[in-house]
């Protein structure tokens, strides 16, 4: 892809710029779409229609209108807030999830950076998110925000363990941390002639690993039933309480970007990434991007589905679930996958 861009763009820096701006475009367009989709999904689950007016067809322009409204809003910083941290926090949050997209192979022809420690990099850089949330909660000078921030710190740190361990169980099979290589290993139809050669079908323990990964990623991206940091009905808005306008919008964008990021990681690790589910049919760089985003969106849709179905856990139950169930299970599963690899 870089060579392709270099063939018609004049200078090196411009190529790099265009190259790195692509994930941002994807995130922004995806976020506009996903927020609209969330409303439609919520609406249909709740026996109503969701936005129907703005833009004509099924309210497609609703999020754009909201975005324009949000940009015009006054930028309010509470009088006793720590102004610098307060203003910085949303940018750090977004930067953290945007930076993680660089290691995601969107198609066989496009990955931001072919770093060899791709997954490790993603796990590391997304930790910045919890730093930014603690910054936001602390700087707001609001007790509810502070409670939300404290919850986030505890939750993110805890749930990183099962996430990393389940990722590790895939890494045992692949032997590489580079997500492009992980995806390439899943090409073709291997199992029983028709099932695609995806890691989810690799062994029964892989399916367990995926379920664990998905639960942990719900907690990582603060989605229901693990949305305690912002839990509206308890903490008013958690760390977002004092934010308004575009700064709040950035937090919103980060949340959706995070959902996509974790879904894409899940799709890459377990569902063959940009590989077509039909072997070589509908394959290639462009179709690859389509399949990748489709798989990501399906997982995002499941997250939305859960959000509008389940209640929320309490903070101690959240910790119980993580430390008493998810972490032991993921370690046992890791050992079982390792044994499976040794035997077969």
């Amino acid at each position: 892809m870089q060579q392709f861009l270099e063939s018609f763009l004049p200078a090196g820096p411009v190529v790099v710029f265009v190259f790195s701006i692509i994930p941002l475009m994807i995130i922004l367009i995806y976020a506009l779409f996903a927020i609209w989709l969330e409303r439609k999904v919520a609406g249909h689950i709740q026996d109503r229609l969701g936005p129907m007016q703005t833009g004509g067809w099924h309210g497609w322009a609703q999020t754009i209108a909201d975005l324009l409204k949000m940009i015009q809003k006054e930028d309010i910083v509470p009088a006793k807030a720590d102004r610098f941290l307060f203003k910085m926090a949303p940018f750090i949050a977004f930067a953290a999830s945007y930076a993680a997209f660089v290691a995601i192979p969107f198609s066989s022809g496009y990955i931001g950076s072919m770093i060899d420690v791709g997954v490790f990099y993603i796990v590391a850089i997304t930790s910045l998110l919890s730093v930014s949330i603690i910054m936001a909660g602390w700087a707001s000078n609001n007790k509810w925000s502070l409670l939300g921030a404290m919850r986030t710190a505890a939750q993110t740190v805890s749930y990183e363990v099962p996430t990393v361990v389940t990722i590790l169980s895939v890494i045992i099979v692949t032997g590489t941390l580079n997500l492009m290589e992980v995806t390439e290993m899943q090409t073709g139809n291997a199992f029983l002639g028709f099932l695609p050669n995806w890691f989810i079908f690799h062994s029964p323990f892989m399916m367990i690993a995926f379920v664990l990964f998905f639960i942990a990623s719900l907690a990582e991206s603060h989605r229901v039933p693990f949305d305690l940091p912002e839990s509206e009905s308890e903490l008013v808005g958690g760390y977002q309480t004092e934010y308004s306008g575009m700064r709040w919008g950035l937090f919103m964008l980060t949340e959706y970007a995070d959902m996509l990021l974790l879904s894409l990681v899940g799709a890459t690790l377990f569902f063959g990434g940009w590989n077509s589910p039909f072997g070589s049919f509908m394959d290639g760089p462009v179709w690859g991007a389509f399949w990748m985003l489709l798989k990501g969106m399906v997982l995002v849709f499941v997250m939305m589905w859960l959000r509008w179905t389940l209640p929320r856990l309490r903070v101690d139950q959240l910790m119980n679930l993580c430390w008493k169930y998810l972490i032991p299970l993921s370690f046992v599963n890791l050992v079982l996958i390792a044994l499976w690899e040794m035997i077969f």
Binding site: A42, I45, Q46, D47, R48, V224, P225, D227, S231, S233, W308, T309, L310, P311, R312
Partner: peptide, 16 residues
Amino acid sequence: FGLDIGAFTPFLYCFI
């Protein structure tokens, strides 16, 4: 009550 616990959808079912 469902809303307080974090379940949004039953609230709207009840309202219907």
